[in-house]
Design a protein around this nucleic acid. Sequence first.
DNA 1: AATAATCAATTTGTATGGTAGTATGGTAGA
DNA 2: TCTACCATACTACCATACAAATTGATTATT
Lengths: 228, 228
Amino acid sequence: MKLEIEKQRDGMTVSDYVYQVIKRNIINLNMAPGNRISENEISELLHVSRTPVREAFIKLAKEGLLYVIPQKGTYISYIDLDIVEDARFIRESLEKSVLKIATEKFPEELLGVLQENLNVQKKLIEQRSFFEFLIMDEEFHKTIFIGCNKERTWSFIENINSEYKRVRMLTFIADINWKNIIEQHMQILNSIKNHDEEMGQEVIGNHIKKLIFEQVELKERYPQYFKD
Amino acid sequence: MKLEIEKQRDGMTVSDYVYQVIKRNIINLNMAPGNRISENEISELLHVSRTPVREAFIKLAKEGLLYVIPQKGTYISYIDLDIVEDARFIRESLEKSVLKIATEKFPEELLGVLQENLNVQKKLIEQRSFFEFLIMDEEFHKTIFIGCNKERTWSFIENINSEYKRVRMLTFIADINWKNIIEQHMQILNSIKNHDEEMGQEVIGNHIKKLIFEQVELKERYPQYFKD
DNA sequence: AATAATCAATTTGTATGGTAGTATGGTAGA
DNA sequence: TCTACCATACTACCATACAAATTGATTATT
């Protein structure tokens, strides 16, 4: 198990640092689903005591990214497609509602932000920096929510979205379809610019449909990562 | 600050026990929004060490019921009506979708469970056991979700619902409208029995509308509990 | 040889002491 | 009187030690 370990930033508690490192490595699948990890192991790896590691585990367990069996062990959760489906359903519903608002009324200055974001995304895809791309991708959608004054709803989505992120990471690893994601994002931006609600709804709908097919394929190719 | 402290059940970790006690007392407003609490204070009160208290704080902070400022203090979150509104919106949307399924197809045996639940609710209202009533209320809705094979979606709602629960507790304290809640529940049950989707949607819509008016009134009567 | 009992190793759970950051109240100096 | 400074007393944060439970291997027993 090789982990990506960034440095601890100033003004950050050790607990938050550990939380961030582990979360990142679970989502980018450096920590494989089903793998067993222990508080001791991580504390030695990151050169901190067990306490902040334990506290990070608690947070991650509440997000469903790992589960703790008392006096036995801690394990990375398997990807559960039922959970992914729930997350997808909720997200699609909310995204559509918000995009409807966005096509009616959206702050001019944020349009530039979205455009700039897409430029960065292109570069990251070329560099195959998938984790960073996912961050910018999320940022893209988040900006739309902010423009509609629904930032809180977005942060709420974020909490249930870790599972979904792992699947997306897997699509990148499997080299499925990441080529046309940028194009879809450009279509979304255009629908906002042109106040074309119908087009926006259609783009998002298509995007989601594709993901379902991909998931089945992924489970066949990487069964060891999935539940059941 | 007077807390309701139940005994610790067997097979339960101290951490979970503390979590449960504090959560209960935040929701039933024994711990008032804005109040400052400390690890030491709670650990002495419950006769446990600081560690499980701290771990309980972490979980509660992730639910938004309290917030921790490092090296400064821990505070009970104020009721944020914006958050309540978001929770309400999301819940209404999902409840409507599920009730649509329920009016089309619902397991016969669970209808009896719902009926029995309503009987218990009546008794609890008469006894003015509000916290217990809220539990049964949630159980009522949960049962509907289970019947539609959407238990996971329900547990997801639960996580964002603590804020909403505090408001509901406040409606009871303020003696607003709790008399006709039972009747509304009976109407919901009937809509399922009679496969009447239209009626179900209308009942839930009305129920939600009332709550909005109540919240404004509540904020005027108990401004100290609210944000802004 | 098969099975039961025991022990060692490893895990998470809990308790406790010390540390660093923050607010507060008082005091000396302008 | 006001201000800057310092001592003090809090806080959450972290490290460490120990407890309790589970597991797996080893040993003893049948």
